[in-house]
Write a protein that binds this DNA or RNA. Structure first.
Lengths: 209, 209
DNA sequence: TAGATTGTTAATCGATTAACAATC
DNA sequence: TAGATTGTTAATCGATTAACAATC
């Protein structure tokens, strides 16, 4: 190979997927790069370029068959089979995430984990809460691919290590805290505080200009 | 002006701020661009370049005074005074967000709103839940700057319009749904599903390579 | 002063866009 | 075939990096 696909292109695939599913739900069978671009807020050149990294999915003169392109993108992303996800931490955030993710057909929340005995054994949207000590055993039996960490920042490093030992290779965290990411693990952060700070800058700048 | 500051630079300011506060808590008085770069995982050229968009904050031969740089970045972002935030939706996600944001000194959650009468009147981390109908009145009295929407996607457009009418100009949403953003409003999205999809692609690619 | 590190310029790299040949 | 739109190339744009003059 030698060349690699830009991360932004991968992230845009998720956006295309959403717009395509909306088009499908509106009953559209074909879509053009210009139309997909418009609904996603991206240029049509970029849509075609992004897709071209992975193959040829369209028909010249016609456009893309919506259903076919959805399947293709799902396969590229790796969600043609539902992804098995665990949630670590069954507090408010953890429970909200379980409910949210269970509604998305691409994901299947197979279990939640909490160190608090009072939470263990309960069920949220049909998802059982297990003690964290059982994670490795659970993982051997069920093979979840991704862990979403809904825990306070103090326990982050310890939890990442545990999740890694359980063989889970994708981790989403809500706290970017100087963490040592174990080899083979891919970590991704969503920092709510940063997003609000970004908004703060933008509205401040807008009111000055 | 004619030239504008890259969005990525603004977003990195939030990262610098976090690293600087950690340095401060370790008792460090001075920091060099190389050290800040290392702890943030960014190149030192870029650190200096990003800061140079806003002024000169360092001393040649010495580095940056940690406390002074923190104050400077806080002012640039607009969080030198705590930002007043409201949470719309007091379900699991909303309550988790209230608790999370209340712990961050840059933000003050001044109120939460829910259309469900059974939630109204309750209190989460000292934050009162009001009926959505009272948002405009509340906003006139308290002037929150930012709204975080923890609501199901169905009500998104309606809520964005309401928040806009209440004079709030910064909105963070957890669902990128083909929304018409009212003029003067800045909207920002955090899509958990997209973040997990990105992880899916990465771990899939990693295991193939 | 000598040593160090910033702030800035110019060079490089990579991503986006415009344009169009290929082709349905 | 004529019309349309993809896939791709080359041009443009913008962001990152390397290097160094300025200066504490």
């Amino acid at each position: 190979m030698g060349f690699s696909i830009p991360e932004v292109s991968i992230r845009r695939l998720s956006i295309y997927l959403r717009c395509l599913r909306q088009a499908l739900s509106r009953g559209e069978e074909w879509i053009q790069s210009t139309e997909l671009a418009r609904t996603c807020g991206i240029s049509s050149s970029l849509v075609r370029k992004d897709l071209s990294y992975f193959g040829e999915f369209g028909i010249r003169g016609r456009g893309y068959r919506v259903e076919k392109l959805i399947k293709a993108i799902e396969e590229i992303i790796g969600i043609d089979e539902p992804i098995k996800v665990i949630i670590v931490g069954a507090g408010n955030l953890g429970r909200a995430l379980i409910r949210h993710l269970q509604e998305i057909p691409y994901f299947r929340v197979v279990g939640a984990f909490d160190k608090n005995a009072s939470k263990v054994g309960s069920t949220v949207s049909g998802v059982r809460v297990y003690p964290v000590a059982e994670m490795e055993k659970f993982s051997r039996e069920t093979s979840p691919q991704i862990a979403v960490l809904a825990i306070p920042p103090e326990g982050l490093q310890e939890t990442v290590d545990m999740v890694s030992r359980a063989g889970i290779r994708g981790v989403l965290s809500f706290a970017l805290q100087g963490i040592k990411v174990p080899p083979g693990v891919v970590m991704n952060y969503v920092e709510i505080a940063s997003e609000i700070e970004f908004l703060s800058y933008k509205i401040k700048k807008g009111s000055v200009a």
